[in-house]
Nucleic acid binder design. Structure first.
Lengths: 124, 124
DNA sequence: ATAACATCTGGAGTTCGCTCTAAGTCAAGA
DNA sequence: TCTTGACTTAGAGCGAACTCCAGATGTTAT
């Protein structure tokens, strides 16, 4: 797969794909004879993982560290597990914060709904 | 309340409090005769709201816009309601993304748990 | 062969959200 | 009175995550 195909498929710009590879968010991508990137299934798997994790807000640093450990082989299995656990816990906290904020937005919106009828806002 | 008290109470640095006021994330804060900030109950309310919304990831721009509209009075009630709705929808999307990513992390972690016993990672 | 187009690299620039610095003001205590 | 410490402003600096640019090279179609 070419970089433009991968870019379309995962909704990541070509610049970002090259950037991710450069800083190690994904491992080095396969090249054809002309030196152009030719993404294998495996390469795509890493791109997809990065896209997913980034969409949830994981920092690039955590992803580069995960990739670095993965490339070191089975000796780093427990380190990688630990890394994933830490990130999961960060997401768990974030999930609660977002839920609470949404409840608060719901309450405020309900106040505005009432205000739309009376023309006056109470208890903002 | 002094800026240092408010800073401690809401876990926001004094620099950030001044920054928020400067760019309009909170309305202008009350001052004493010497020109020092003296946060009223109301001022604190805005700080607390900003802290909550920021913790969930709302952009500063949405907060400044909300404050700007609020200061224009009752004529902007439906605009403000709309703004809150849009932000709530953004959070709803984010919530789902984070949940899905957490499930994926859970799956990967379970693979690593197995790998910790066998010493070999299958199906990463 | 030439034009048009995709991709490459290295490096500069941008945006967001702070965070820090410098130089000045003010209030209270030794 | 002098010093210490909290506060002020304006503006510079910073880290994260892109995003853009210039100049080179390679590929494809006419």
């Amino acid at each position: 797969m070419t970089i433009s195909e991968v870019s379309k498929k995962y909704g990541i710009s070509q610049d970002t794909l090259r950037y991710y590879e450069r800083i190690g968010v994904i491992p080095p991508v396969n090249r054809n004879r002309s030196g152009l990137r030719d993404y294998t299934e495996d390469d795509c798997g890493w791109v997809e993982l990065a896209a997913c994790m980034r969409s949830a807000g994981l920092p690039l640093e955590a992803l580069t560290e995960y990739v670095r450990l993965s490339r070191e082989g089975d000796a780093t299995i427990s380190d990688r597990r630990q890394l994933l656990l830490e990130q999961k816990e960060r997401l768990q906290v974030q999930l609660r914060v977002v839920q609470e904020t949404m409840e608060r937005l719901d309450y405020k919106i309900s106040c505005y709904d009432r205000a739309m009828k009376t023309g006056r806002l109470v208890w903002d």
